[in-house]
Amino acid sequence: MTTPTDTSDTRPTRRLSEAGVSIWLDDLSRELLRSGALAKLLTEKDVVGVTTNPTIFASAMSKGDAYDGALQELAGTDVESAVERITTDDVREAADVLRPVYDATGTVDGRVSIEVDPRLARDTDATTAVAERLWTTVDRPNVMIKIPATVEGLPAITATLAKGISVNVTLIFSIERYRAVMDAFLDGLEQAQANGHDLAPVGSVASFFVSRVDTEIDKRLDAIGTPEALELRGKAAVANARLAYAAYEEVFSSDRWKALEAAGARPQRPLWASTGVKNPDYRDTMYVDELVVAGVVNTMPGSTLDAFADHGIVLGDTVSGTAEEAAATIAAIEAVGISLEEVTRQLEEEGVSKFEVSWDELLTTTRAGLDSAGGAR
């Protein structure tokens, strides 16, 4: 894969920010907070937000001794309550670190996301209730509650926004589902307005997953094995994301949106998630380099952020005006026998399942820590 040349002397993360992309870190741990490393990322690598998920918390809890003090304090607490206490404490502390960014950007950035228990992904009412509880518990205006874009999650997204609660919609893989997410967002803001909420601070992003699409489609292309199929490897994810951006442009230029914008609402920004490159044959920053456009968020795991800070490439807007080419790429993939609809449906199911597994790991790790500290109920 050919690497374009960027001769600018400015650091890559600064150039990306200047191109209008908000850099969020897809990671959080107590060690990252207490060591001051998160605060340094704001000044040294232009980070302006943080996302978390069950996998991130499970990993953080399983490493080192940063949570030993909290577990000692929570000894005797039931494990579910302990997990919520630990995760909301971390998110609250991160929100305080990011608060100056939130204020400086007029509530646009400086956001920290925390996810509803993924075991509730198919339960609308329970998701809505837990979203409100997390919002109240963290008690910071710059928190976002992550709700998965399952069919059952869509009305929960609307109901949560209607209460004036900021939402990060996660696990979006298909354009069709993304359109439903944007519609749920508009419904929620219209209800929030009717409920008397100030729309300006009600933030939302739509987390469109990228690398997992290539991982699954590349596997299928390899199995087909024809020259036509192999030529399409590594092209599906970026094309899918670029089509998502075209859908975003369409919805957020509509009269329906303009009425909300006139009332002070901010758009639900596309957020490129799952941006770590899984295939070592590909450029390790491709899901950042090739998705540069003003007004989006790119949330990166630490390794991708480090790689981009070292050798990322910013050559201006690489998304606008690419919809026709992206549609042709997807059509070519379909033509060799791969159904994108089938792939994205599978990825959503796997995504929910993987987060459930991570949540169970988090509960197990926490239970063991509580037992060591004096017993869990």
Rank of each mutant, 00 (worst) to 15 (best):
P148M: 10
A39E: 12
D255K: 13
F308K: 03
R269F: 01
D222A: 14
A223T: 14
P12K: 03
R266D: 11
L260T: 05
A376T: 10
T3A: 00
N142M: 09
L71V: 05
I23N: 05
A37L: 07
D371I: 12
S174L: 04
E290Q: 14
A327P: 09
N298R: 10
L347W: 04
T365H: 12
T322E: 11
S113Q: 06
R256C: 09
A180P: 08
A180E: 15
V83N: 02
A58Q: 05
V112Q: 10
D9P: 10
R30C: 05
E216A: 12
L42M: 10
A262C: 08
A331V: 11
W135H: 14
T170A: 03
T304H: 08
D117I: 06
Y248I: 08
T10V: 15
D198V: 07
L25C: 09
A37Y: 05
D139A: 11
I23L: 10
R177E: 08
L33E: 01
L98Q: 05
E325G: 10
A39G: 02
V21R: 03
L315M: 07
A244W: 09
V48K: 13
H311N: 01
H311W: 00
V91C: 02
V48T: 13
E324I: 12
T127L: 01
L98N: 03
E152V: 10
R34P: 12
E228T: 06
I114S: 02
S113E: 09
G49A: 10
T170M: 08
T128S: 14
K258C: 02
A162E: 02
F252I: 03
F57A: 08
I114D: 00
R14H: 15
A121Y: 06
K219M: 13
S166V: 08
T7F: 14
V292T: 04
P118I: 03
V167Y: 07
R133G: 02
E349H: 14
S8V: 12
T344E: 03
G64L: 05
G64K: 11
E342N: 15
D187P: 10
A241S: 13
D125A: 15
S22T: 15
L25R: 04
V202D: 07
P118A: 04
D90Y: 02
A156Y: 01
V357D: 14
A75F: 13
S166I: 04
L16D: 09
D117F: 06
G64R: 11
E44P: 05
L347C: 06
L243W: 09
Y67D: 06
V181S: 10
V116F: 04
A75V: 11
I157Q: 03
K40H: 14
D371C: 09
A326C: 01
A262F: 09
